[in-house]
Amino acid sequence: MIRIENISKRYRYNGHESAMILSDINLTIPEGQFVCLLGPSGCGKTTLLNLVAGFIKPSQGRILFNDARVTGPGPERGVVFQDATLFPWLTVRQNVEFGLRQRGLNNNNRTKIATEYLHLVGMALHANAYPHTLSGGMRQRIAIARVLALEPQALLMDEPFSSLDINSREHLQDELLRVWDAHRRTLLYVTHSVEEAVYLADRVIIMGPAPKSICGDMILPLKRPRKHFSDEFRSVIASLRLSLDALPCCIKPSEKKSGRI
């Protein structure tokens, strides 16, 4: 369970406080729920995800994960980034083994578990390849395997399929649902696509610019498996569109990548 309590976030540049990104957010995400954070770019979806991941610290408030306060990143909260960010100096298998190695597993067990998860995402044949020889979709599959191998209690995904072509994206969405369905872990998923959110999520949280960071919170009344073109699917999309249309289409970019750890 993820509890987000009174969270606010401002970024700081050269000592100056910049505008508020997130303002006074309160959310509770129960165990096993698939939650999409939906909203225009720049509204702080990624910032909220990074806070839950522990990559950044809130300016105010706190985040509890299974009742323990989040103070930094950790393998119980696996993150899939927008780019696969596989380590280019490691083979596919070694990339998946990275987290297992940190846990101190021996060689045999590492290889066994890594192979199992590579199978799960259909990449077992490429175990000995280096990431640069693979396509974007394949890399993202491996990034998912790498995180699943950690056996995290929650998955945090930041627009993981947004840089893929439509075909791979839909394939990977289906595979993600299959994998999620097998274990029902809590999943927090950032997207700016209404279709994607409606196809994947149990619950959609609509985010807007601060100070009104949360503009909507909706449990989707759709059964699984979902069909892209069913009437109810379309009507849910239409109603979410309405809420989104009320928001400004984009907000000035605020999250700057810094070169330092």
């Binding site: 393998p75 993150v79 980034f81 990275f98 940190q102 330092r260």
Partner: peptide
């Protein structure tokens, strides 16, 4: 070292890497 992608560091920490690793 400074140009090394921040996300590499984040990914490593997320997977449980300590300072030495």
């Amino acid at each position: 070292v400074k140009r090394l992608d921040t996300t590499f560091v984040r990914a490593a920490l997320m997977m449980g890497a300590g300072r030495k690793a």
